[in-house]
């Protein structure tokens, strides 16, 4: 089973480190200081968004039977059948935005500078080297992990199991408090 990125939403504190790391990884220089000055501007393919009291790193989940691939009329959006990774081929993309219109996660966006669809590609260069995708590597709280669906499900099960035998798996009290207090103004 191939690996993908999974999210423990309860561990996200909304620092946006993933956004920065993603943009840098998809720059030419791959160095923050110079990436910022590149044209076209490297853009993150993950966006941390408010979700009531929580924050959520919103990103392509590389769906099974992806709607964007079905909707793409130019063959630019493809699914690697071996790994399940969904990627855009910029050369074929004409920017018709059908993929944006059908993505149920809001994870495919328009890149106004290139006029092409824009989404998570699971960092092919990094993963080829055996490294985690940039957002996962940058996440300081372990909210993002690069794993197989099975291992992620195992982790989740472990958390459930621990809590049923009385081991607290809740967020620390101060974090719960902070989340409860920010709900009022987070837009």
């Amino acid at each position: 089973m191939s690996e993908s990125i999974f999210t423990f939403v309860e561990r996200c504190v909304g620092c946006k480190s993933c956004e920065v790391a993603c943009a840098v990884e998809h720059s030419r220089s791959k160095v923050l200081a110079s990436a910022m000055r590149e044209t076209p501007r490297p853009r993150p393919r993950v966006r941390v968004q408010p979700a009531m009291n929580y924050t959520f790193p919103s990103r392509c989940v590389h769906c099974e039977d992806p709607a964007c691939v079905a909707a793409c009329p130019t063959g630019a959006m493809t699914e690697d059948l071996a790994t399940g990774t969904v990627r855009v081929n910029d050369d074929r993309c004409i920017g018709c935005w059908m993929c944006v219109t059908v993505c149920p996660f809001g994870a495919v966006t328009e890149n106004p500078e290139t006029g092409t669809a824009h989404k998570c590609d699971l960092c092919p260069e990094r993963t080829a080297r055996g490294e985690d995708p940039a957002c996962v590597a940058a996440c300081p709280t372990g909210a993002l992990i690069y794993s197989t669906a099975e291992r992620f499900a195992d982790e989740r099960r472990k958390i459930t199991a621990l809590s049923t035998v009385g081991v607290s798996t809740e967020a620390p009290g101060n974090v719960t408090l902070w989340r409860s207090l920010r709900g009022g103004y987070q837009r």
Binding site: M52, N53, Y54, F105, G106, A107, L177, S180, L181, G183
Partner: peptide, 23 residues
């Protein structure tokens, strides 16, 4: 209108969890 404008993702579909509002 405010919620509709700006970036929008699946996060918007998450329902509001119960919340404490005081320290």
């Amino acid at each position: 209108g405010t919620a509709l404008s700006g970036r929008w993702s699946v996060a918007a579909m998450l329902r509001e969890p119960p919340r404490v509002r005081s320290l």
